[in-house]
């Protein structure tokens, strides 16, 4: 909106000044007309980084940690803007509407592949995906005094009476994961959406529901304190913070569900800009300080190249179309 406008102006000024200097030196430059189109010159101004969640959440934390790395690598300022609201669609539509010049990028959460199936005007094809940076796998957990000690117990018990499973909200990734588990295992599960992850975990702690599907990070401490039993992790490998917890795969259910995040930009970036950004993101995502910043909250630093990430988003979108009703 405004700041991007200011930035375009600033970028233009910088570009124009640079062009004058270069022309004065006798070099030839014809790139004084836009906010960067030349690989060697990108970036020439601040980059806006749009986050779909309010300051302080997991998406915000990842975005700020990554931006701090990117600033050093790209040698420019990165302004993190939170544009929360409407399940993140406000920010996603905003990013899609910006000029594809590389000066507006954003955090692409798992919802970017889900919202279309929930009736929002958010389509993955409106974005250039520049790389995945993290994956935060989900778990299914039960209260400490629950009779179920394994995923199999729970699935079996559900044949007699439906099991109530709390999740973070209608249309959230954890509701989708619950539906996915029910489909894969044939269990009779009743998803109970709460208003956020914390109340959902609290409902399991208080025994109001039989189980909860939540992010690994949200349940690690309760598991360690012995107030919650984590039955399975929805990932193909064991979580470093939950070494005793089996994966759903090892229990015989092929399930991978979690909140992933990457970087996207409006579609149609110039190739050289796209290259510069994705190289920088690759370097930032694999840095130690980025990984140190995001791992305490249960997230796993996970890098995928732009090509891998793009096809991953497509396959996730297809999967959610089936689970969420597909309209």
């Amino acid at each position: 909106m405004l700041s991007s406008r200011n930035n375009v102006v600033r970028a233009l000024t910088v570009t124009a000044t640079a062009a004058l200097v270069i022309a004065g030196l006798g070099a030839c430059s014809s790139d004084a007309d836009g906010g960067g189109g030349d690989a060697s010159s990108f970036p020439e101004g601040d980059i806006n980084f749009i986050v779909q969640a309010a300051a302080g959440g997991g998406s915000d934390l990842t975005s700020r940690a990554l931006s701090a790395e990117l600033e050093g690598i790209l040698g420019t300022s990165i302004v993190v803007e939170n544009r929360p609201g409407a399940s993140g669609s406000t920010a996603m539509q905003y990013v899609a509407d910006q000029e594809a010049d590389g000066y507006t990028i954003g955090f692409a959460p798992v919802e970017v592949s889900m919202l279309e199936h929930l009736g929002f005007d958010v389509l993955p094809e409106n974005y250039d995906f520049l790389g995945q940076v993290m994956f935060s796998p989900g778990v299914i957990a039960v209260p400490a005094d629950s009779p179920y000690d394994s995923l199999d117990d729970l699935v079996e018990a559900s044949q007699d009476e439906a099991i109530t499973v709390a999740n973070a909200g209608a249309g959230s990734i954890w509701e989708a994961a619950t539906l996915g588990l029910a489909e894969e295992s044939g269990a009779d599960l009743t998803p109970v959406p709460f208003d956020g992850g914390a109340p959902a975990v609290a409902a399991a702690l208080g025994g109001q529901v039989d189980a909860v599907v939540a992010g690994a990070g949200e349940t690690v401490q309760a598991n360690a304190d012995g107030t919650l039993k984590i039955l399975a992790l929805f990932n193909d490998e064991v979580h470093p913070m939950l070494e005793d917890v089996p994966t759903a795969e090892s229990e015989g259910y092929d399930l991978m569900f979690g909140g992933w995040g990457g970087i996207y930009a409006p579609t149609g970036l110039p190739d050289d800009v796209k290259q510069a950004l994705s190289d920088a993101i690759a370097e930032a995502a694999e840095s130690d300080s980025f990984s140190d910043a995001i791992t305490p909250s249960g997230a796993l630093p996970t890098y995928k190249t732009p090509e891998e990430f793009t096809s991953f988003v497509e396959s996730e979108s297809e999967r959610f179309a089936g689970l969420l009703g597909g309209n």
Partner: peptide
């Protein structure tokens, strides 16, 4: 906005801005 349990849209008249 969105129904808290099913996620269906109520009185949003097709505006995504109202869905939250």
């Amino acid at each position: 906005g969105r129904d808290p349990i099913t996620g269906d849209q109520r009185f949003t008249f097709g505006f995504d801005a109202l869905s939250g």
